[in-house]
Write a protein that binds this DNA or RNA. Structure first.
Length: 237
DNA sequence: CGCCAGGTTGTTG
DNA sequence: CAACAACATGGC
Protein backbone atom coordinates (compact mmCIF):
# COMPACT_ATOMS: atom_id res chain seq x y z
CA UNK A 1 0.00 0.00 0.00
CA UNK A 2 1.41 3.37 -1.05
CA UNK A 3 1.82 6.11 1.48
CA UNK A 4 -0.24 9.27 1.01
CA UNK A 5 1.61 12.58 1.24
CA UNK A 6 -0.06 13.45 4.53
CA UNK A 7 0.73 10.05 6.01
CA UNK A 8 4.31 10.54 4.88
CA UNK A 9 4.46 13.89 6.64
CA UNK A 10 3.17 12.38 9.88
CA UNK A 11 5.73 9.60 9.81
CA UNK A 12 8.61 11.96 9.12
CA UNK A 13 7.50 14.48 11.71
CA UNK A 14 7.06 11.86 14.41
CA UNK A 15 10.49 10.42 13.66
CA UNK A 16 12.63 13.50 13.03
CA UNK A 17 10.66 16.10 14.99
CA UNK A 18 10.32 19.80 14.12
CA UNK A 19 13.16 21.10 11.94
CA UNK A 20 12.49 24.83 12.43
CA UNK A 21 13.75 25.97 9.07
CA UNK A 22 15.21 28.29 7.73
CA UNK A 23 18.24 28.88 10.00
CA UNK A 24 19.83 32.26 10.78
CA UNK A 25 23.57 32.36 11.46
CA UNK A 26 24.57 33.97 14.74
CA UNK A 27 27.88 33.82 16.60
CA UNK A 28 29.22 31.47 13.99
CA UNK A 29 26.45 28.87 14.28
CA UNK A 30 23.19 28.20 12.48
CA UNK A 31 20.17 28.72 14.71
CA UNK A 32 17.00 26.72 14.14
CA UNK A 33 14.54 28.33 16.53
CA UNK A 34 11.04 26.97 17.25
CA UNK A 35 9.31 30.15 16.10
CA UNK A 36 10.83 30.02 12.64
CA UNK A 37 8.16 27.85 11.01
CA UNK A 38 5.49 30.48 11.68
CA UNK A 39 7.50 33.65 11.89
CA UNK A 40 7.11 36.58 9.54
CA UNK A 41 10.75 37.29 8.76
CA UNK A 42 12.34 40.70 9.19
CA UNK A 43 13.96 42.29 6.12
CA UNK A 44 17.38 41.40 7.56
CA UNK A 45 16.43 37.75 8.03
CA UNK A 46 14.74 37.60 4.64
CA UNK A 47 17.88 38.88 2.96
CA UNK A 48 20.07 36.35 4.74
CA UNK A 49 17.72 33.56 3.65
CA UNK A 50 17.80 34.89 0.08
CA UNK A 51 21.59 34.88 0.00
CA UNK A 52 21.76 31.54 1.80
CA UNK A 53 19.41 30.05 -0.79
CA UNK A 54 21.85 31.03 -3.54
CA UNK A 55 24.89 29.88 -1.59
CA UNK A 56 23.43 26.46 -0.81
CA UNK A 57 22.87 25.53 -4.45
CA UNK A 58 24.28 22.02 -4.72
CA UNK A 59 26.37 22.70 -1.62
CA UNK A 60 26.46 21.38 1.95
CA UNK A 61 25.04 23.81 4.51
CA UNK A 62 28.20 23.61 6.60
CA UNK A 63 30.07 25.37 3.79
CA UNK A 64 27.32 27.95 3.38
CA UNK A 65 27.56 28.68 7.09
CA UNK A 66 31.26 29.57 6.75
CA UNK A 67 30.50 31.86 3.83
CA UNK A 68 27.73 33.64 5.74
CA UNK A 69 30.00 34.09 8.74
CA UNK A 70 32.67 35.64 6.52
CA UNK A 71 30.14 38.02 5.01
CA UNK A 72 28.55 39.07 8.28
CA UNK A 73 31.82 39.78 10.03
CA UNK A 74 32.94 41.91 7.11
CA UNK A 75 29.83 44.09 6.65
CA UNK A 76 26.13 44.45 7.46
CA UNK A 77 24.07 42.12 5.29
CA UNK A 78 22.31 44.74 3.19
CA UNK A 79 22.10 45.13 -0.59
CA UNK A 80 23.79 48.53 -0.51
CA UNK A 81 26.67 47.21 1.59
CA UNK A 82 27.16 44.08 -0.46
CA UNK A 83 27.23 46.16 -3.61
CA UNK A 84 30.19 48.17 -2.32
CA UNK A 85 32.18 44.97 -2.85
CA UNK A 86 33.36 44.03 -6.31
CA UNK A 87 32.37 40.58 -7.52
CA UNK A 88 35.93 39.49 -6.94
CA UNK A 89 35.98 40.74 -3.33
CA UNK A 90 32.62 39.13 -2.74
CA UNK A 91 33.74 35.84 -4.26
CA UNK A 92 36.70 35.80 -1.92
CA UNK A 93 34.42 35.97 1.14
CA UNK A 94 32.08 33.24 -0.03
CA UNK A 95 34.80 30.92 -1.27
CA UNK A 96 33.97 28.11 1.21
CA UNK A 97 30.53 27.73 -0.37
CA UNK A 98 32.01 26.59 -3.68
CA UNK A 99 31.19 27.87 -7.21
CA UNK A 100 32.25 31.13 -5.65
CA UNK A 101 32.67 33.17 -8.83
CA UNK A 102 29.25 32.10 -10.11
CA UNK A 103 27.60 32.74 -6.79
CA UNK A 104 29.20 36.16 -6.36
CA UNK A 105 27.70 37.13 -9.69
CA UNK A 106 24.32 35.69 -8.70
CA UNK A 107 24.31 37.63 -5.43
CA UNK A 108 25.24 40.83 -7.24
CA UNK A 109 22.38 40.38 -9.70
CA UNK A 110 19.88 39.81 -6.88
CA UNK A 111 21.17 42.73 -4.80
CA UNK A 112 20.96 45.12 -7.75
CA UNK A 113 17.42 43.95 -8.39
CA UNK A 114 16.38 44.47 -4.75
CA UNK A 115 17.99 47.87 -4.47
CA UNK A 116 16.68 49.21 -7.74
CA UNK A 117 13.14 47.80 -7.63
CA UNK A 118 12.38 47.45 -3.91
CA UNK A 119 14.55 49.94 -2.07
CA UNK A 120 16.72 47.08 -0.82
CA UNK A 121 13.90 45.47 1.17
CA UNK A 122 13.15 41.89 0.09
CA UNK A 123 9.92 41.85 2.14
CA UNK A 124 8.37 44.34 -0.30
CA UNK A 125 7.96 41.42 -2.72
CA UNK A 126 5.34 40.07 -0.34
CA UNK A 127 2.91 42.68 -1.66
CA UNK A 128 2.80 40.99 -5.06
CA UNK A 129 0.59 38.06 -5.96
CA UNK A 130 2.49 34.80 -5.53
CA UNK A 131 2.67 34.01 -9.23
CA UNK A 132 4.08 37.42 -10.04
CA UNK A 133 6.65 37.36 -7.25
CA UNK A 134 7.76 33.93 -8.48
CA UNK A 135 7.97 35.16 -12.05
CA UNK A 136 10.18 38.08 -11.01
CA UNK A 137 12.53 35.81 -9.06
CA UNK A 138 12.81 33.37 -11.96
CA UNK A 139 13.68 36.20 -14.31
CA UNK A 140 16.89 36.84 -12.34
CA UNK A 141 20.09 35.20 -13.53
CA UNK A 142 21.12 32.57 -10.97
CA UNK A 143 17.68 31.88 -9.54
CA UNK A 144 15.97 28.71 -10.73
CA UNK A 145 12.77 27.06 -9.46
CA UNK A 146 14.09 25.64 -6.20
CA UNK A 147 15.93 28.79 -5.16
CA UNK A 148 12.92 30.92 -6.09
CA UNK A 149 10.55 28.75 -4.08
CA UNK A 150 12.90 28.61 -1.08
CA UNK A 151 12.95 32.40 -1.04
CA UNK A 152 9.19 32.65 -1.49
CA UNK A 153 8.42 30.13 1.25
CA UNK A 154 11.13 30.73 3.84
CA UNK A 155 12.06 34.38 3.37
CA UNK A 156 8.76 35.89 2.22
CA UNK A 157 6.15 33.54 3.70
CA UNK A 158 4.28 32.54 0.54
CA UNK A 159 2.58 29.12 0.70
CA UNK A 160 4.55 27.35 -2.03
CA UNK A 161 6.14 23.91 -1.81
CA UNK A 162 9.87 23.53 -2.43
CA UNK A 163 11.02 20.54 -4.48
CA UNK A 164 14.63 19.40 -4.21
CA UNK A 165 16.70 16.35 -5.04
CA UNK A 166 15.88 14.79 -1.68
CA UNK A 167 12.15 15.13 -2.32
CA UNK A 168 12.58 13.34 -5.62
CA UNK A 169 14.81 10.67 -4.18
CA UNK A 170 12.43 9.80 -1.35
CA UNK A 171 9.30 9.86 -3.51
CA UNK A 172 10.94 7.68 -6.17
CA UNK A 173 11.82 5.13 -3.55
CA UNK A 174 8.24 5.25 -2.29
CA UNK A 175 6.98 4.48 -5.78
CA UNK A 176 5.56 7.85 -6.82
CA UNK A 177 5.66 8.08 -10.62
CA UNK A 178 5.36 11.88 -10.40
CA UNK A 179 8.83 11.98 -8.84
CA UNK A 180 10.39 11.58 -12.28
CA UNK A 181 8.31 14.36 -13.82
CA UNK A 182 9.04 18.06 -14.18
CA UNK A 183 9.56 20.38 -11.21
CA UNK A 184 6.17 22.08 -11.51
CA UNK A 185 4.40 18.77 -12.07
CA UNK A 186 5.73 17.31 -8.87
CA UNK A 187 5.09 20.56 -7.03
CA UNK A 188 1.44 20.42 -8.12
CA UNK A 189 1.11 17.06 -6.43
CA UNK A 190 1.84 18.74 -3.10
CA UNK A 191 -0.31 21.78 -3.78
CA UNK A 192 -3.26 19.51 -4.58
CA UNK A 193 -2.83 17.13 -1.67
CA UNK A 194 -1.49 19.25 1.19
CA UNK A 195 -3.40 22.25 2.52
CA UNK A 196 -1.47 25.41 1.69
CA UNK A 197 -0.06 26.41 5.06
CA UNK A 198 3.29 28.15 5.31
CA UNK A 199 4.29 26.47 8.57
CA UNK A 200 3.37 23.05 7.22
CA UNK A 201 5.16 23.54 3.90
CA UNK A 202 8.28 24.80 5.64
CA UNK A 203 8.39 21.86 8.00
CA UNK A 204 7.58 19.28 5.35
CA UNK A 205 10.34 20.32 2.97
CA UNK A 206 12.86 20.43 5.82
CA UNK A 207 11.78 16.92 6.81
CA UNK A 208 12.52 15.68 3.29
CA UNK A 209 16.04 16.98 3.70
CA UNK A 210 16.39 15.22 7.05
CA UNK A 211 15.13 11.96 5.54
CA UNK A 212 17.21 12.43 2.40
CA UNK A 213 20.36 12.65 4.45
CA UNK A 214 19.59 9.30 6.10
CA UNK A 215 19.34 8.02 2.56
CA UNK A 216 22.49 9.63 1.15
CA UNK A 217 25.80 8.15 0.05
CA UNK A 218 25.62 5.53 2.75
CA UNK A 219 21.93 4.72 3.24
CA UNK A 220 21.13 3.88 6.85
CA UNK A 221 18.06 1.76 6.18
CA UNK A 222 18.15 0.35 9.68
CA UNK A 223 17.26 3.79 11.04
CA UNK A 224 14.92 4.95 8.32
CA UNK A 225 11.27 5.37 9.32
CA UNK A 226 10.26 4.70 5.70
CA UNK A 227 11.92 1.32 5.38
CA UNK A 228 8.75 -0.74 5.15
CA UNK A 229 7.42 1.39 2.27
CA UNK A 230 10.72 1.72 0.43
CA UNK A 231 11.42 0.12 -2.94
CA UNK A 232 14.76 -1.12 -1.69
CA UNK A 233 12.87 -3.24 0.78
CA UNK A 234 10.87 -5.04 -1.91
CA UNK A 235 13.14 -5.14 -4.91
CA UNK A 236 16.38 -6.26 -3.38
CA UNK A 237 18.13 -8.85 -5.56
C1' DC B 1 41.20 9.22 -1.91
C1' DG B 2 36.63 9.43 -4.06
C1' DC B 3 32.07 10.89 -3.67
C1' DC B 4 28.67 14.22 -3.05
C1' DA B 5 26.31 18.25 -0.97
C1' DG B 6 19.38 21.92 0.73
C1' DG B 7 21.10 23.77 -8.32
C1' DT B 8 21.51 26.78 -12.40
C1' DT B 9 23.06 27.91 -16.81
C1' DG B 10 24.64 27.11 -21.41
C1' DT B 11 25.33 23.88 -25.22
C1' DT B 12 24.05 20.24 -28.18
C1' DG B 13 21.25 16.44 -30.34
C1' DC C 1 12.58 18.59 -24.24
C1' DA C 2 16.58 15.41 -22.40
C1' DA C 3 21.27 14.77 -21.72
C1' DC C 4 25.58 16.69 -20.50
C1' DA C 5 29.39 19.75 -19.14
C1' DA C 6 30.85 23.50 -16.22
C1' DC C 7 30.94 25.65 -11.99
C1' DA C 8 34.38 24.43 -6.82
C1' DT C 9 34.96 23.94 -1.72
C1' DG C 10 35.04 20.95 2.28
C1' DG C 11 33.35 17.00 5.10
C1' DC C 12 33.03 12.17 5.66
Amino acid sequence: MRLSLSELYDILFRFYGPQNWWPIVENGVSLYLPGYTQKQRTPEEALEIWIGAILTQNTAWKNVEKALVNLKERLPLLPESLLTLSEEELSDLIRPAGYYRQKAKKIHVSMRFLLQDYGGNPCELRRLPLSEARHQLLSLWGIGPETADSILLYALGFPIFVIDTYTRRILKLLGYPEATQSYERLQDLFHKNITPDVGLYREYHALFVAAGKTCGRKPDCGRCPLFSWCERHHTRA
